[in-house]
Computed example of a mutant assay.
Amino acid sequence: MGDNRKVLGKVSVERSGFGLAEEDPFLEAETEWMELEFTDDSPNVQVAQGQVHVLSAFRSHDATVTLELSDTPAGGIPGWSLLAQLPYLSRSGIVEVWTIAGPEEIRLDLQAEEAPFTLQVFRRHIPDTESRYQASLEVPHGLEEYVFRFSPAA
Protein backbone atom coordinates (compact mmCIF):
# COMPACT_ATOMS: atom_id res chain seq x y z
CA MET A 1 0.00 0.00 0.00
CA GLY A 2 2.88 2.34 0.69
CA ASP A 3 1.50 5.73 1.63
CA ASN A 4 -1.62 6.52 3.61
CA ARG A 5 -4.78 7.68 1.87
CA LYS A 6 -7.08 10.25 3.45
CA VAL A 7 -10.29 12.13 2.59
CA LEU A 8 -11.94 14.87 4.62
CA GLY A 9 -15.38 16.47 4.55
CA LYS A 10 -18.35 17.73 6.54
CA VAL A 11 -21.31 15.57 7.48
CA SER A 12 -24.74 16.76 8.54
CA VAL A 13 -25.47 14.83 11.73
CA GLU A 14 -29.21 14.40 12.27
CA ARG A 15 -30.97 12.69 15.17
CA SER A 16 -27.55 12.15 16.80
CA GLY A 17 -26.35 9.78 14.12
CA PHE A 18 -24.57 9.21 10.87
CA GLY A 19 -22.82 6.28 9.30
CA LEU A 20 -20.57 4.74 6.72
CA ALA A 21 -21.83 2.35 4.07
CA GLU A 22 -20.54 0.48 1.07
CA GLU A 23 -22.50 -0.32 -2.05
CA ASP A 24 -24.49 -3.54 -1.69
CA PRO A 25 -25.23 -4.48 -5.33
CA PHE A 26 -26.82 -7.81 -4.43
CA LEU A 27 -28.75 -6.48 -1.41
CA GLU A 28 -27.13 -9.08 0.85
CA ALA A 29 -27.06 -6.98 4.00
CA GLU A 30 -29.41 -8.15 6.71
CA THR A 31 -29.97 -4.59 7.92
CA GLU A 32 -29.26 -0.99 6.92
CA TRP A 33 -26.55 1.01 8.73
CA MET A 34 -29.21 3.14 10.51
CA GLU A 35 -30.76 0.00 12.02
CA LEU A 36 -27.55 -1.26 13.66
CA GLU A 37 -28.24 -1.13 17.40
CA PHE A 38 -25.78 0.07 20.00
CA THR A 39 -24.73 -2.19 22.87
CA ASP A 40 -23.13 -1.75 26.28
CA ASP A 41 -19.87 -3.11 24.78
CA SER A 42 -19.90 -0.51 22.01
CA PRO A 43 -22.27 2.34 22.95
CA ASN A 44 -21.13 4.81 20.26
CA VAL A 45 -20.18 2.68 17.23
CA GLN A 46 -21.73 -0.41 15.65
CA VAL A 47 -20.34 -2.32 12.68
CA ALA A 48 -21.69 -4.88 10.19
CA GLN A 49 -20.21 -5.96 6.86
CA GLY A 50 -19.73 -2.79 4.83
CA GLN A 51 -21.61 -0.63 7.37
CA VAL A 52 -20.89 1.55 10.40
CA HIS A 53 -23.39 3.43 12.61
CA VAL A 54 -22.11 6.24 14.86
CA LEU A 55 -23.94 7.83 17.78
CA SER A 56 -22.99 11.50 18.14
CA ALA A 57 -22.98 13.37 21.42
CA PHE A 58 -25.27 16.03 19.91
CA ARG A 59 -28.62 15.83 18.15
CA SER A 60 -28.27 17.95 14.98
CA HIS A 61 -25.07 19.66 13.84
CA ASP A 62 -22.37 19.57 11.19
CA ALA A 63 -19.23 17.59 11.99
CA THR A 64 -15.89 17.21 10.26
CA VAL A 65 -15.15 13.62 9.19
CA THR A 66 -11.85 12.13 8.04
CA LEU A 67 -11.62 8.70 6.44
CA GLU A 68 -8.14 7.28 6.17
CA LEU A 69 -6.43 4.11 5.04
CA SER A 70 -3.30 3.16 6.97
CA ASP A 71 -0.81 0.31 6.60
CA THR A 72 -1.18 -0.62 10.28
CA PRO A 73 -3.40 0.41 13.19
CA ALA A 74 -1.65 3.36 14.77
CA GLY A 75 -1.76 4.49 18.35
CA GLY A 76 -4.09 7.16 19.60
CA ILE A 77 -4.35 10.72 18.38
CA PRO A 78 -3.36 13.29 21.06
CA GLY A 79 -6.45 15.17 22.27
CA TRP A 80 -8.89 12.68 20.70
CA SER A 81 -10.98 9.91 22.31
CA LEU A 82 -10.90 6.41 20.87
CA LEU A 83 -14.59 5.49 20.58
CA ALA A 84 -14.01 2.01 19.17
CA GLN A 85 -11.50 -0.37 17.66
CA LEU A 86 -13.44 -3.07 15.86
CA PRO A 87 -13.05 -5.63 13.08
CA TYR A 88 -14.55 -4.39 9.82
CA LEU A 89 -15.27 -6.54 6.77
CA SER A 90 -15.35 -4.61 3.50
CA ARG A 91 -18.02 -5.40 0.93
CA SER A 92 -17.23 -3.38 -2.22
CA GLY A 93 -14.00 -1.69 -1.15
CA ILE A 94 -15.43 1.84 -1.44
CA VAL A 95 -16.71 3.24 1.86
CA GLU A 96 -18.86 6.38 1.90
CA VAL A 97 -20.26 8.68 4.62
CA TRP A 98 -24.07 8.58 4.91
CA THR A 99 -26.74 10.52 6.78
CA ILE A 100 -30.43 9.76 7.06
CA ALA A 101 -30.85 11.83 3.88
CA GLY A 102 -28.39 9.72 1.88
CA PRO A 103 -24.72 9.73 0.83
CA GLU A 104 -22.55 12.76 1.62
CA GLU A 105 -20.03 12.43 -1.27
CA ILE A 106 -17.14 11.65 1.11
CA ARG A 107 -15.62 8.36 -0.17
CA LEU A 108 -12.51 6.32 0.53
CA ASP A 109 -11.16 3.54 -1.66
CA LEU A 110 -10.05 0.75 0.67
CA GLN A 111 -8.20 -0.86 -2.25
CA ALA A 112 -9.65 -4.29 -1.45
CA GLU A 113 -13.09 -5.88 -1.89
CA GLU A 114 -14.47 -8.28 0.71
CA ALA A 115 -11.36 -7.86 2.85
CA PRO A 116 -10.94 -7.70 6.64
CA PHE A 117 -9.79 -4.45 8.27
CA THR A 118 -9.30 -3.05 11.73
CA LEU A 119 -11.41 0.10 12.14
CA GLN A 120 -10.44 2.72 14.71
CA VAL A 121 -12.97 5.50 15.35
CA PHE A 122 -11.76 8.66 17.09
CA ARG A 123 -13.79 11.69 18.21
CA ARG A 124 -12.82 15.13 19.45
CA HIS A 125 -15.11 17.76 20.94
CA ILE A 126 -14.23 21.37 20.31
CA PRO A 127 -13.76 23.52 23.49
CA ASP A 128 -17.00 25.06 24.85
CA THR A 129 -19.00 22.60 22.75
CA GLU A 130 -21.91 22.24 25.16
CA SER A 131 -22.45 25.98 25.62
CA ARG A 132 -22.07 26.61 21.86
CA TYR A 133 -24.66 23.91 21.17
CA GLN A 134 -27.14 25.28 23.71
CA ALA A 135 -26.72 28.89 22.50
CA SER A 136 -27.07 28.12 18.80
CA LEU A 137 -30.29 29.15 17.08
CA GLU A 138 -29.28 27.42 13.83
CA VAL A 139 -27.61 24.09 13.09
CA PRO A 140 -24.24 24.44 14.83
CA HIS A 141 -20.99 23.78 12.97
CA GLY A 142 -17.70 22.44 14.28
CA LEU A 143 -18.83 20.85 17.56
CA GLU A 144 -17.26 17.47 16.85
CA GLU A 145 -14.65 15.92 14.60
CA TYR A 146 -14.30 12.24 13.71
CA VAL A 147 -11.50 10.12 12.27
CA PHE A 148 -12.21 6.67 10.82
CA ARG A 149 -8.92 4.81 10.35
CA PHE A 150 -8.99 1.59 8.34
CA SER A 151 -5.98 -0.75 8.34
CA PRO A 152 -5.74 -4.22 6.79
CA ALA A 153 -6.28 -6.96 9.38
CA ALA A 154 -3.28 -9.17 10.05
Rank of each mutant, 00 (worst) to 15 (best):
A29V: 03
V11Y: 07
A21Q: 12
I106P: 03
W33Y: 03
M34C: 11
L69Q: 01
L110H: 02
E68K: 09
E114D: 14
F117G: 03
V13N: 03
G102W: 09
E14P: 07
T66R: 10
A29C: 09
G19Y: 03
S70E: 13
I94S: 07
P78H: 01
G19V: 03
L67N: 05
S60P: 00
S42M: 09
I106E: 01
F117Q: 01
L27P: 00
G75D: 12
V13A: 03
T66C: 13
L36W: 02
D71Y: 10
R91A: 12
V47R: 04
D109M: 03
G50N: 05
D109C: 01
E22R: 05
Q46Y: 06
V7Y: 04
T66K: 08
A48D: 07
Y88R: 01
S42V: 05
Y88F: 13
V65E: 06
D41A: 14
P116F: 08
L108E: 00
P78A: 03
L89S: 14
R123K: 15
L119V: 05
I94V: 15
E96A: 02
S90M: 04
L67W: 04
E37Y: 09
G19C: 01
V7R: 03
V52I: 13
F38W: 07
V65D: 07
G19H: 05
E37D: 15
V13S: 01
K10A: 12
V45Y: 09
D24Q: 01
Q120A: 15
G79Q: 04
P103D: 06
E96R: 02
A57E: 14
V11S: 07
G102E: 05
P127N: 11
S16V: 05
L108M: 04
Q51V: 00
Q46G: 12
R91I: 06
T66I: 12
V47I: 09
E114L: 11
S81V: 15
V11T: 13
S12F: 13
V97H: 02
E68R: 13
T72D: 11
L27W: 11
G79Y: 07
R107N: 06
E23I: 06
I126S: 13
Q120R: 14
Q46P: 02
Q85T: 14
K6C: 11
V13E: 03
Q46M: 12
A74G: 14
P87N: 08
P127Q: 11
R59H: 15
Q46E: 11
A48H: 02
R59Y: 15
A29F: 08
G9M: 07
G75Y: 08
S12R: 15
A48L: 05
L110A: 00
W80I: 01
L82D: 08
I94A: 04
W80R: 09
G102P: 06
W98M: 07
T99S: 10
K6F: 08
V13Y: 02
R123N: 10
D109P: 01
S70R: 15
A115K: 02
G102T: 01
E114A: 14
D109R: 04
I126Y: 11
T66V: 13
V95L: 06
P73K: 02
S42N: 14
G102D: 03
L55Q: 12
P87K: 09
L27D: 11
W98Y: 14
S90G: 12
L20H: 06
T31R: 12
V65N: 06
D109F: 00
F38K: 00
P73W: 08
I100A: 09
L8F: 08
V13M: 06
T118I: 15
A74R: 14
G9N: 10
V95S: 00
